[in-house]
């Protein structure tokens, strides 16, 4: 085994984990909100994009990436909550078609609004100096920033899992996902729980938007790119299934991470191949047993 090949493998593995982290952070909220509320939010990745632009604006005015990471997701989640309360609640009992149409319209409005404020051009956001360097591992020199992205995703996942599994609030949320009427009858405000879940989903996607900004820049089409990818993850994983989304995001990470090392010019097709493969074996997605 040559040394060069080992370093390629290491680079591929790091890309895989980075992609996995980012795409799962984006898709998790989409699939959870669908699973709990039966609501399909096509504007989900528009909020992710909004977080990227917010991070850009904060970094430009204050120079601090850390401030952007702390503020932008909160701002975006709050905007999301306002939109959910004002618009989405009217459609929780409507058809998926109406939900998709309304949220696609919202995605248009957010995308054009971002263009009005920030223009058509792409922006780059510099990572904080401490993360800007590279480190070497098995002969490969790799960007430290990738490690940062992976750790952000890990920390967020751990915090949310602990909250869900280990706290009373988490227990109520899990119960509300399965028996909303019963949880409501016990005196909990199911509506508030829904809003909370919605906000956490957007918060995750917004965190992805912020950490994505130094990696791939902020540009007008980023919402659409992420939307297609998230839909692939959510459909192949099974609508509403968080473990499914996690596994498919990992599969996409592998083909993207290693595929783009070895066959970079066809990378754009990999997600479709994964989706086709999964649906051939399991037409309802990996964990999509129930009718959706």
């Amino acid at each position: 085994m040559t040394h060069a090949f080992a370093s390629l493998l290491v680079a591929g593995a790091l890309d895989t984990l980075t992609f996995w982290s980012l795409s799962f952070m984006i898709a998790a909220g989409l699939t959870v909100v669908f699973g709990m509320l039966g609501f399909l939010n096509a504007a989900h990745t528009a909020f992710y994009m909004l977080a990227g632009y917010a991070a850009y604006a904060i970094v430009r005015h204050t120079g601090s990436f850390w401030l952007a990471l702390a503020l932008a997701p909160v701002i975006v989640a709050l905007i999301g909550v306002a939109v959910e309360r004002l618009l989405f609640t009217r459609l929780y009992r409507a058809s998926h078609a109406s939900q998709l149409l309304l949220t696609i319209g919202l995605a248009y409005i957010i995308a054009e609004g971002a263009k009005i404020i920030w223009g058509d051009s792409a922006f780059t956001v510099a990572p904080p100096p401490i993360l800007a360097g590279r480190f070497s591992l098995l002969g490969a020199t790799l960007p430290i920033y990738h490690l940062f992205i992976i750790s952000v995703a890990l920390v967020l996942l751990c915090v949310i899992s602990v909250l869900l599994v280990g706290t009373r609030l988490g227990m109520v949320v899990r119960a509300a996902a399965v028996y909303p009427e019963m949880v409501g009858a016990l005196g909990f405000k199911v509506r508030t729980i829904y809003t909370l879940v919605f906000a956490v989903g957007l918060f995750l996607a917004a965190c992805a938007g912020v950490v994505m900004a130094p990696l791939a820049g902020v540009y007008p089409g980023m919402a659409d790119d992420a939307l297609v990818q998230s839909f692939i993850i959510v459909v192949a994983g099974g609508l509403g299934s968080l473990p499914g989304a996690f596994i498919v995001a990992g599969l996409l990470g592998v083909v993207q991470g290693f595929g783009s090392v070895f066959f970079s010019s066809y990378a754009i097709f990999f997600p479709f191949i994964v989706l086709g493969g999964v649906l051939l074996v399991r037409p309802h997605g990996l964990f999509g047993g129930r009718a959706a």
Binding site: H96, L227, F231, V234, V235, L239, P271, H284, A292
Partner: peptide
Amino acid sequence: GAYFSMTTLT
């Protein structure tokens, strides 16, 4: 339903 819309989108 939603599956159809998402499949056609991809």
